[in-house]
Design a protein around this nucleic acid. Structure first.
Lengths: 196, 196
DNA sequence: TTGACGAGTGGGCGCTTGCCCACTATTACT
DNA sequence: AGTAATAGTGGGCAAGCGCCCACTCGTCAA
């Protein structure tokens, strides 16, 4: 077997499998056996690439948030056309429609995992920071923000959208919220915060 | 043994034990054995009062949110003095300093439990509704709300506070956020939404 | 006093979890 | 071709889970 390259391939393979398990069965079902079975490899493979399963989870979360950040950056590039509400709706759908909510649920649920993540990640829940800066960039690009500075958005409006979006998308057992529902939420939140 | 009264006593006893386990060890540690051990009763006692442990969890969550609502009502009574920021800070501390965050984490984590709760609870995460109406009552009592109607608060500002508060209080492994930290968050959020 | 009933007990079953470890298969180097 | 190294396999372990059920024991009615 190739030494360096294949080693990283297996890790990616396991991460992708974790994504599918997370989206299909929820964070409670994210066990080492479920991940390896989904990846189509032997169950012992995790402990060759990671000291233990919690270490796998920690690296998985870090990797996924990095990818979310990249996706947010890509959205920033393509923004500018359309209203701010449309852009925010797209952004929220992209962020919360993905594996992000399950990752947040995982971090919130597992105290020990969160403590482990703090060694690498000094402050709070990283998803908040990433999505907040993303939304702030959106709003800063809009004209006539009035007294609503970008900092105020990060401190106030962004958590609004994240909080509501989180609760809106948290339920994967029911039917997924359609774009109109998300847009309505964004619309009401922005209407209550932006000057007109 | 007395029949009716003691039966409800044991249920309360188990609920109180679940509170302590939840606050001390987190939602991941909330097992039937942990609850019964904390309550100082035999592990078989749960299955005499509830068909299964998930039914216990569902009733526990329903009961706890009812209590949160009662606490919010009590806070509403004593409100009126002090600034809106102070009142909101007290409210958030009362709601999120309790077992509420762990309950939300539980609901977010467990897909099956959430589906079970929906049979009794038709829409979304109830904590959001309760806390939102509570905060809306606070703000409605304040004069000079300007264009910010109570509905807009429920739709916009309340989720802001709940979202940030949730993430602020979600970490029970680190030191708990002091009142000043909460107040600073509330201050920045309100400053970004209320007209001055 | 005695019998029956029901709340409470705890041993144990079946299952799943993370993890260990002896093992095989596949590659790279001499 | 032979050998060493290593990625990958999977049986099996201890621990923990929810749950079942035979059991004890306190309490009332007869």
């Amino acid at each position: 077997m190739p030494t360096g390259v294949a080693l990283r391939d297996v890790r990616e393979q396991l991460f992708d499998a974790a994504d599918r398990v997370l989206l299909r069965d929820g964070p409670a079902a994210l066990t080492s056996r479920a991940v390896t079975a989904e990846a189509g490899v032997s169950k012992g493979v995790v402990h060759r690439h990671f000291p233990d399963f919690d270490a796998f989870l920690a690296e998985f979360v870090l990797d996924r948030v990095d990818r979310m950040d990249a996706r947010a950056a890509a959205l920033r590039e393509s923004a500018g056309t359309g209203t701010v509400v449309d852009n925010l709706t797209d952004a929220l759908t992209a962020v919360f429609g993905s594996v992000a909510v399950a990752v947040v649920a995982l971090i919130t649920f597992r105290d020990d995992l969160r403590a482990r993540l703090r060694e690498t990640w000094p402050v709070g829940v990283p998803v908040l920071t990433d999505a907040a800066s993303m939304i702030a960039t959106y709003l800063a690009a809009e004209r006539d923000l009035g007294r609503l500075t970008a900092d105020a958005v990060v401190e106030g409006l962004a958590p609004t959208l994240i909080g509501t979006g989180h609760l809106l998308f948290a339920d994967r057992t029911g039917p997924p919220p359609d774009r109109d529902a998300v847009r309505r939420m964004v619309d009401s939140v922005v209407a209550g915060s932006l000057p007109r």
